[in-house]
Design a protein around this nucleic acid. Sequence first.
DNA 1: TAGAATACTTTGTATAACTATGTATTTTTA
DNA 2: TAAAAATACATAGTTATACAAAGTATTCTA
Lengths: 110, 110
Amino acid sequence: MKSEFLINWHSQLRKGLLPLFVLMVLQEKENYGYELIQNLQTRFAIDVAEGTLYPLLIRLQKEGLLTSTWVEQVSGIPRKYYVITPVGQQTLHEMRAYMDSLKSINQNEQ
Amino acid sequence: MKSEFLINWHSQLRKGLLPLFVLMVLQEKENYGYELIQNLQTRFAIDVAEGTLYPLLIRLQKEGLLTSTWVEQVSGIPRKYYVITPVGQQTLHEMRAYMDSLKSINQNEQ
DNA sequence: TAGAATACTTTGTATAACTATGTATTTTTA
DNA sequence: TAAAAATACATAGTTATACAAAGTATTCTA
């Protein structure tokens, strides 16, 4: 059974990883929120609550990393599709560079 | 120049990484706070303010991952040395396992 | 027709980094 | 030798963000 500390650590780690993962998914293809939650699960084995993701998407959009458009469905509820912007791509690039630098640091371990 | 967003992202990412890095350093050798700040800088290229590290150390101790003892110096100010506990080592192990799982996920990228 | 699934939003709470400040001692330097 | 810098630890207030919970609305399914 996972300790209280580890559960909390995971939650804290997500504060950094989640924006990265979201940008990574959207880099490949535009997504609407509900779809993104499922892609994050299959792609990164990470369960994201709607109350976590939607505020994040709004924040990323406010920062200029994403744009969004409502798309009416022939059948079903309208979906808000999120697309990564050039600023978002540049930011993703720098995030990746930082993550890679961490990896190389961790290499000189037993 | 780094964007506001990236600066903030780094800060959020640290909330997850810092406990991991601290445990990694202490896994190798006991450290006192001030020394630890320097080791985190040389080892992980990460600048940690005292106001960040000391509360973290107190928290980790409260969680049972560390113990600490004051050591009087022949010359100089007494130092509080932090030592990783078995619980801390187990926790570190699980943190590493999780970090490794992230790495393998990130591998299937262009 | 009730319930599940889809789809987005908002409110309140908890966690933890960060800034700033404070205390105290020792070493360096001008 | 006095001032400044470095060493060493601690705490209060602010801010960002995950998360739980609840809400709104539509569509599909049994």
